[in-house]
């Protein structure tokens, strides 16, 4: 059986464990032997994005050590994947040894939906979910990794599911890591613009590939008194 390692990300580990479990379930269902290296923590993005590069480097080195031997690393996040695939080079521009480790790991790191389509080459994972959903394009997945049609293709194979596009699918939800608490009002305003667009679709559920965006969207929906829920793509695909 082919083997994959999952990097679930710290936020999934601590706040959305079900997303991680769903991803594992889907991967196993399509025939992978899944490994969870228990030494894993975080990719370092919070520090990097806030300007603390030395701190980010420490965490990044830890990541590189943990996953050094993994054949495939599958991640339920466009943002963390993009951090590792693109920003580590920046972090280690002056550390050849770690730069090499980064270059070695980069082709093996896969965002979950991209892995399904490009490595496993499956579109139909046998999911069923009878709901009307709308899909939010996460910025780093969309612009950093070119993830646009892939998740929609996967969703189109989910039995019972109807996708209704929102007009502002590509607009940022306003999360932005520490931005959300450094500039809460701007961030909140962005979230409200986003949910207006979501509400216009009449969908019952917002689906995305990054739990951080979903955290923001769900929080804003709940604050607005809406009952619309959020679900990670992995959870949708695991559902039967």
């Amino acid at each position: 059986m082919p083997r994959v390692s999952v990097f679930v990300t710290c936020i999934v580990d601590q706040m959305f464990p079900k997303v991680g479990m769903a991803m594992v379930e889907v991967l196993e269902r399509i025939g992978y032997d899944v490994d969870f290296p228990e030494e894993q923590t975080c990719c370092g993005q919070p520090a990097f994005n806030t300007g603390y590069r030395e701190e980010a480097r420490k965490v990044a080195r830890h990541f590189l050590k943990v996953f050094r031997d993994a054949e495939y690393i599958v991640v339920p996040s466009g943002s963390c994947t993009s951090m590792i695939a693109h920003q580590y080079r920046e972090l280690f521009a002056k550390e050849p040894e770690w730069l090499e480790a980064t270059n070695a790991i980069e082709p093996r790191i896969w965002e979950f939906s991209k892995f399904l389509l490009e490595v496993a080459k499956v579109e139909d994972v046998g999911a069923r979910l009878e709901r009307v959903v709308t899909f939010h394009d996460s910025c780093h997945g969309l612009r950093g990794l070119g993830i646009k049609e892939g998740p929609r293709r996967l969703l189109s194979r989910v039995r019972g599911l109807t996708l209704r596009e929102m007009d502002a699918a590509e607009e940022c939800c306003g999360f932005g890591g520490t931005f959300s608490v450094k500039f809460p009002e701007i961030s909140g305003g962005m979230a409200r613009t986003k949910i207006d667009s979501i509400l216009r679709t009449g969908a019952e559920l917002v689906v995305g590939i990054d739990v951080s965006c979903l955290l923001q969207i769900r929080g804003a929906l709940s604050r607005a008194g809406s009952t619309i829920g959020t679900m990670h793509l992995a959870e949708v695909l695991a559902h039967r």
């Binding site: 601590q14 706040m15 009002e185 955290l215 769900r218 929080g219 804003a220 604050r223």
Partner: peptide, 15 residues
């Protein structure tokens, strides 16, 4: 954070 939005419920167990 709470000035703008709610927070998802914390899970009982980590991944």
């Amino acid at each position: 954070w709470f000035s703008q939005r709610d927070l998802a419920p914390m899970p009982a167990r980590s991944f």
